[in-house]
Design a protein around this nucleic acid. Structure first.
Lengths: 227, 227
DNA sequence: TTAAATGCTGACCGTTCGGTCAGGATGTTT
DNA sequence: AAACATCCTGACCGAACGGTCAGCATTTAA
C-alpha cells in the first residue's frame, strides 16, 4: 500500500540514456512550466504543484532540481534580464537615429513575441513592486537607460530629431511594445483574434515605428544635407 | 480560556454611533485594502488575511461584508470598469481630433494617477489571461474601441490625420498611459525618484500628446482651411 | 562484483489558505 | 424589560501550501 508503482520504467527517464540528457530536458521543461505559471499568477499565486504538473514531474523533483520556489523564480528573472541586456547592445552617436530607433522597436517587439511568458513574468514582478528586482532597476537598467538617453540627447542637439525627453521616449517605446505581450488577452479579446499572426506583428511594428519616429521628428541621416 | 477579550469596546465600532456609518467606513476600508493586495499579488496570491490586516479588521469581518474572496474581487473589477467606461464617453466625428486625442491621453493619464491600485489590479487580471473579464473584453470594451476606431477612421478620410490603423493607435495611447501606473516601480527606479510629482505627470502628458499627435499627423481643425 | 555516488520520489511536516458557524454583543421595537 | 433582528468574530474545518527526508533506483568507480 505504501508503494504501488512499478519498480522500473518510472519517472521521465524511461530507458537508460547516458549522461545528463534527461537532466537537461527536465530542467528545460521545469523552467518553461514555471515561467508560464509565475507569469499567470505572480510569485505568491504560483504553486510548485502547478509547475510540476505542467512539467510532467512530481513536485519533489522540481525542488530537487531547483532547490526552492524562490531560487527558481530568481533564476527565471535572471534569464529574462540576460535576454533584455542583449538588446541594442552597441549604439553610438554616429549611428543613424531612424535606423537605431526602428531596430529598438523591432527587437523589443520580437522579444515580447518570442518570450511572451518571460515578458509577462517580468511585468508581474514590476506590478508587484519589484521586490526581487529593485537592485537591478536602480543599477544596471538605470545605467542602460541613462547611456541611451544621452545618445538621444546628442542626436537632438545635432538636429537629427526633436528635443524630446529621452527617458520618456524610451518608456513610450517600452510600454507600446511590452503591451502586446502583457495585455495579449485584451488585444485578442478586443480585436476578436485567436492569436497575433506574423503579419499582425509586422503591421504593428511598422505602425509604431512610423508614428514614434514621425512624432519625434526623426530625420534619417540620409535626409539631412549637412553634418 | 476560550474567550479572553473584554466584553465591550471591541471591534471598530468603538462608541455607539447610529446608523450605518461604521458599515460604510469598514466597507470602504476593505475595498481599498483589497485593491492594494490584489493589485500587488494577483487574485491567487492575495490572501484575505492580508486584506483584513490592512483594513484593520478580523478576517471573519471581511467575509461577513464581502461574502467571498471571489465576490470581493469581482466587485473591485466592476468598480474599475465603471471608472473606465466614464472615460471619453461622448465624442463625435464633428469634434476636433487634436482636442479629443489630447483629452483621451490626459484623462487616461489621470485615471492611472488617481487610481493606481485599480489600474494595477486591472493589469494583473489581464496579465493572468483575464479569467474574470473575458466577457467584458469581447463585449462592452470591444464595442467601445470599435466605436472610437470608426470615428478616427472618418477623421483620416477627411484628411484631419494620417490614415493609421485606429485600433493600434488606441492601444498605443492605452499602453503609454497605463505604463505609469503598472510599471511605477520601474519608472521610479530608473529615474531615481521616490514618486512622480504633479509636474512630472504634466510633463509626461505633454510629451505623449505632442509625440502621438504629431506622429499621426493630427491637424487641429483650426489649422485646416477648408472643410 | 561490489561499493560509493548520485538521481529521484512518496510520505510526511508545520503553516496558511478560503470559508463556516455558534453564539455573544449591539440596536430596535414593543 | 423583554423580545427580536442584526452585527460581528473567535474557533474551527478540510485543503493546499513550501519544504524535508528516508530510502529505493540507477550510474559510476574500483
Amino acid at each position: 500500500m505504501t508503494q504501488g508503482s512499478a519498480p522500473t520504467e518510472r519517472g521521465a527517464r524511461e530507458q537508460g540514456e547516458a549522461n545528463g540528457v534527461t537532466r537537461r530536458r527536465n530542467e528545460r521543461e521545469i523552467l518553461a512550466a514555471a515561467e508560464r505559471v509565475f507569469a499567470r499568477h505572480g510569485y505568491r499565486g504560483a504553486s510548485l504543484q502547478a509547475i510540476a504538473e505542467q512539467a510532467g514531474l512530481p513536485k519533489s523533483n522540481v525542488l530537487y532540481y531547483m532547490g526552492s520556489k524562490r531560487g527558481l523564480y530568481v533564476r527565471l528573472l535572471e534569464r529574462m534580464m540576460e535576454r533584455w541586456n542583449a538588446l541594442l547592445d552597441d549604439i553610438s552617436v554616429e549611428d543613424d537615429p531612424a535606423e537605431v530607433l526602428e531596430a529598438f522597436i523591432r527587437s523589443k517587439m520580437q522579444l515580447s513575441r518570442r518570450h511572451p511568458e518571460g515578458s509577462r513574468l517580468f511585468a508581474a514582478e514590476i506590478l508587484g513592486g519589484a521586490p526581487f528586482l529593485q537592485e537591478y532597476l536602480r543599477g544596471e537598467l538605470r545605467d542602460w537607460v541613462e547611456a541611451r538617453a544621452r545618445i538621444l540627447e546628442q542626436w537632438a542637439e545635432r538636429g537629427l530629431m526633436d528635443p524630446v525627453d529621452p527617458v520618456w521616449l524610451i518608456f513610450l517605446i517600452w510600454s507600446a511594445t511590452q503591451h502586446y505581450a502583457d495585455f495579449e488577452a485584451q488585444v485578442l479579446g478586443i480585436t476578436g483574434r485567436n492569436e497575433l499572426s506574423d503579419k499582425d506583428v509586422e503591421e504593428i511594428t511598422t505602425f509604431l515605428t512610423r508614428v514614434i519616429l514621425k512624432g519625434c521628428g526623426v530625420r534619417s541621416r540620409a535626409d539631412t544635407p549637412a553634418g
